[in-house]
């Protein structure tokens, strides 16, 4: 079963269109959702959560249409949104009281252990929290009602590298259960490289690719060569070119490229940069 399935999802704004988005996240997997600011990541996540109306297409969460989805399914979803959070006057003890009355599956012990793991001060109210602490609080809330699917919008941004590592560990524990899945958007591609099975790349409202991480590293590579060498290569294999004083770097489809070339592995960040900046064909 798919934890998440988007088919031809479209949303039109005056200055931006989310164009025929197709995403499939199999149960038990983590998908990273990358793209530059304004590419449509948050819009996609809002559509999934039915916070905004879609203009076309279908969305299924845990096998059910996301608009018809009942409260039982919502119990199984943990969400961390980029900006949205709690009343600024509340502290996390009060928040736990509220959540206990919202989620049937709320687990106080689980919440407490996460909160102390993230070292959140019970005396502080949300107003006094830093952005990172708010994120940690949201993550603790999202996990404390034992969800099956986590949907995270920029959940690790604003956190220092050590805190990010802690949280990635928490996600890693979570995904050990085969029924659990995570869909996370992020700018921090190194985080995604650490834990994701799938990478989906969105650019200007369109999905550029949706690959497993292994496929990605097998498909793309960075070729370093001279202009003459580049001219000899089949143009269809070149996805992007970057010229500098020392020669040419090109993002290439490495498995199709025959010949004696030096091809480095391409990181997600490099692939993104080539696609966005270096006139991709």
């Amino acid at each position: 079963m798919n934890a998440l399935k988007l088919e031809n999802v479209t949303k039109k704004y005056d200055s931006f269109t989310l164009d025929n988005i197709n995403i499939e996240l199999p149960q038990g997997c983590i998908m990273g959702f990358v793209g530059e600011n304004g590419a449509g990541k948050s819009t996609t996540i809002k559509l999934i959560l039915d916070l905004i109306r879609r203009d076309g297409g279908n969305i299924e969460i845990l096998g059910q249409d996301n608009i018809k989805v009942g409260k039982e399914i919502r119990e199984d979803i943990g969400v961390v949104l980029d900006e949205a959070c709690f009343h600024e006057n509340l502290n996390h003890v009060q928040i736990a009281k509220v959540m206990k009355n919202i989620y049937k599956t709320w687990d106080d012990k689980n919440f407490e252990s996460l909160v102390s793991k993230f070292s959140l001060d019970p005396k502080k109210t949300v107003k006094e929290y830093s952005r990172g602490m708010k994120m940690k609080l949201s993550i603790a809330v999202a996990l404390a009602h034992s969800p099956k699917l986590l949907i995270l919008d920029e959940a690790t941004s604003g956190l220092d590298p050590i805190a990010r590592d802690e949280i990635l560990d928490v996600f890693f524990d979570f995904i050990q259960d085969e029924q659990h899945s995570i869909f996370m958007s992020s700018h921090i591609t190194s985080d995604l490289e650490k834990i994701c099975d799938y990478i989906t790349f969105i650019h200007k409202g369109k999905i550029v690719f949706c690959h497993t991480k292994d496929e990605l590293s097998e498909t793309y590579g960075i070729l370093k060569c001279s202009q003459e060498e580049l001219d000899r290569i089949d143009k269809s294999l070149i996805k992007g070119i970057r010229k500098n004083n020392f020669g040419i770097e090109a993002l290439v489809l490495r498995d199709a490229l025959k010949g004696n070339f030096i091809i480095d592995n391409a990181s997600i960040e490099e692939i993104m940069l080539f696609f966005v900046k270096e006139n991709v064909k």
Binding site: D50, L51, V79, C85, F86
Partner: peptide, 18 residues
């Protein structure tokens, strides 16, 4: 107005709340 400031509504609607 508190809810608006913290953008609580969009967060709450991801929970089992209609």
């Amino acid at each position: 107005s508190f809810d608006e400031r913290s953008k609580w509504d969009s967060y709450a609607l991801t929970m089992p709340i209609s």
